[in-house]
Nucleic acid binder design. Structure first.
Lengths: 239, 239
DNA sequence: TTTTATTTTTAGGCAAGACTAAATCTTTGT
DNA sequence: ACAAAGATTTAGTCTTGCCTAAAAATAAAA
């Protein structure tokens, strides 16, 4: 029996599961409309949450009973409308906090993830509002990830592509750094490859992507080239 | 067996208990040196934590096993040196957050407590440092409560007295508002009775204290007069 | 199609931290 | 001094969220 008029506050774990179902169920471009998501496997959730698959099954049953996910045994899980809203709310908290830590408190953009991960579950709506206000209601966080609005709409997407999928010679701006791995973040930050940075793809080789950033040339391993999303120079315009 | 080389991170509940043992064990003037505290009863902790006495007993045993409190059955509890340090650290977090919410994010001084209560357990040392830096390493929070330094020293105490204990005619400045009750805070805020405000005690009556604030006169109920700590005008100097 | 490998679920447990009810200590009143 | 009252502790449960091991379902391969 679904409890759609759900006003029981969710636990931290529950919120985290919902967030991950959204993230894993969306393409690499980041979360979009609920209809565009695909079901998520128990295993992928277990990996993401650093937890055993059996634990995931247990939690999914609870969330299904709350009407927050649609869960069919052996068949993966997807969010309901209600679960989707919760997930977006958590994402909004996370990304606003990242932006605030970066802009207001001088955190490096590569340092903000861990702190936001803890805080996202513990701030009030008032806090959310005040930092959003202070920041001027930003549409993207320091990693280039979209921030849902107060009414949970996502900002319009721009046509970005993975560095690893570009043709040689192409120039563009880093639009998004889609990893949370601390080592990767540190390296990319060290190379100046943060959102907004200009780069040119020299060529794709077996080991990864040879690029030029300012006057420097680097060979970026495949694993990193895949998480760097690039906005093409002179690419498609929308207006 | 005490585990004095304690580096197991404490739970939120454990930190809260330690904080309350410190607060309840200190006089109304707020926490001072560990030697000046008195043992705290199970009942008073239960009241403060909104929990049944049996639950308190259970937790105290755990904390005693960790070497954070000295606990003798039926006899109350006090902090050990290690527990005292944890309690001060939590208090520092709490009060720095209150100050930051007030000064940086425009929270009213009467609104900050609830938010700080949640956040105090979830911020990193880096976060603590950055907001302390931003604030200029303040010695007191918006309620006038002392903030332990990064090395956990308490700022020198000033000779304040409860409004309810003053003689009529006396003038002074509000030094501290020692309540966390939201209704009381709202009322005091409404009357402009925040730390720094000047007032004069007209007379003590059975129902409370008749005072003058600016051009207004109020009869402040006993319960409120007891939580208002006043710094006497032209009072004892220390230099 | 049948076997094998992989994924997922079930079953049973554990640790925190709360609760209730019952037992036991301490204090207090006379 | 002693009994009643009040405070505290013990004993036994419950819920949450995780675990491991074993069973079952699905998917892949022969």
């Amino acid at each position: 029996m679904h409890k759609l008029t759900n006003r029981t506050p969710l636990s931290e774990a529950q919120e985290d599961y919902l967030k991950q179902v959204l993230l894993l169920g969306s393409g690499g471009e980041g979360p979009g409309r609920l209809e565009d998501t695909h079901p998520v496997s128990t295993q992928s959730l277990a990996d993401q949450m650093q937890v055993k698959p059996a634990s995931v099954t247990g939690m999914l049953k609870k969330l299904a009973a709350l009407g927050l996910v649609e869960y069919e045994a052996y068949r993966g899980v997807r969010l309901t409308e209600a679960g989707y809203r919760v997930a977006l709310e958590v994402l909004r908290h996370h990304r606003l906090i990242e932006a605030y830590l970066h802009e207001a408190l001088g955190y490096g953009w590569e340092e903000v993830h861990a702190e936001a991960e803890k805080l996202e579950h513990h701030i009030s709506e008032a806090f959310e509002e005040r930092i959003a206000e202070w920041l001027g209601h930003p549409s993207h966080d320091p990693h280039g990830d979209a921030i849902p609005s107060a009414t949970l709409e996502l900002p319009p997407t721009t046509p970005n592509r993975r560095l690893s999928a570009l043709e040689h010679g192409v120039r563009g701006l880093v639009a998004r750094v889609a990893t949370q791995d601390q080592d990767s973040l540190n390296l990319l930050a060290h190379l100046g490859l943060k959102p907004g940075a200009a780069l040119q793809l020299l060529e794709q080789v077996a080991e990864g992507s040879r690029i030029q950033v300012g006057k420097e040339r680097y060979l970026l391993p495949m694993s990193l080239a895949q998480v760097l999303w690039v906005h093409l120079e002179g690419g498609p315009h929308d207006g």
